[in-house]
């Protein structure tokens, strides 16, 4: 079966600066890909192009076979995307915000209730988003990405700002959804990779440095952190 996410030669230039260069990988159903790399490596930029927010300077990306540039609306229907920083409309109440996203996507009230249950938001459903703590805001963003039970999930730092219990919950949620979906998460927490990912892609300065299973990366007995440093420090220095 064809992979749900197919990326080929994806490149993004901002003026003379190349943020992402020739990135290519594909993700099949059942895979959870951890996207790792130092700050400014190009993780968010790659995810934004995949989500159809930024236009690639070169290369293609397809979600469930739909090209994100040629057929953006069709591609976005299959995608749940959590943007970096989980932006949402501050003056809206949690439930109204999710209801808005559900209405655009054409799913009903029960989808909102289900997403709130998955991310444990029921207690704050009538609270304006601007009055929520950072972790709850992140959960609202996550709930929005899960609303329509999409086959493809792209989550930019989904566990950033969550307390240890919530991190555990979200990792459990991702593991539980994994068999049905193709999931890409970016993270700076290396244990997370071992805990939820079936595959890790390390990127620095816009290029892929490694694409392997977490076990494969630590094959030679080093810790994941050592491997990460060994891979990315020379690239950063270059």
């Amino acid at each position: 079966m064809a992979a749900l996410i197919e990326i080929e030669g994806l490149t993004k230039r901002f003026g003379a600066f190349t943020a992402v260069e020739g990135v290519g990988f594909s993700v099949a159903r059942g895979e959870v890909v951890g996207f790792l790399g130092p700050n400014g490596a190009g993780k968010s930029t790659t995810m934004r192009m995949l989500a159809g927010f930024m236009l690639p300077s070169a290369g293609t990306a397809r979600i469930c076979g739909e090209d994100v540039v040629e057929r953006p609306v069709a591609a976005k229907r299959h995608l749940g995307f959590l943007p970096e920083g989980a932006p949402s409309y501050p003056e809206m109440e949690v439930e109204d915000f999710l209801a808005f996203c559900a209405r655009v996507r054409g799913c009903g009230r029960e989808a909102v209730a289900r997403a709130m249950a998955l991310t444990q938001l029921e207690a704050v459903r009538r609270q304006p988003i601007e009055t929520l703590s950072k972790g709850y805001k992140r959960r609202v963003g996550l709930a929005q990405a899960l609303l329509h039970d999409p086959p493809v999930l792209v989550l930019d730092e989904p566990t950033d700002g969550l307390d240890p219990n919530q991190k555990h919950e979200v990792r459990g949620l991702i593991r539980a959804m994994a068999p049905e979906k193709a999931i890409v998460i970016s993270t700076h927490i290396l244990e997370e990779v071992a805990a939820v990912c079936t595959r890790a892609i390390v990127i620095a300065r816009g290029r892929i440095l490694a694409d392997d299973t977490p076990a494969g990366l630590v094959r030679d007995g080093r810790s994941l952190e050592e491997v990460f440093r060994a891979l990315t420090l020379p690239a950063e220095a270059a």
Binding site: A51, G52, V73, K76, P87, S88, V104, R105
Partner: peptide, 10 residues
């Protein structure tokens, strides 16, 4: 940053 959310909805 909500533009990123709005424009990645279908």
């Amino acid at each position: 940053g909500t533009i990123e959310l709005l424009l990645t909805l279908p």
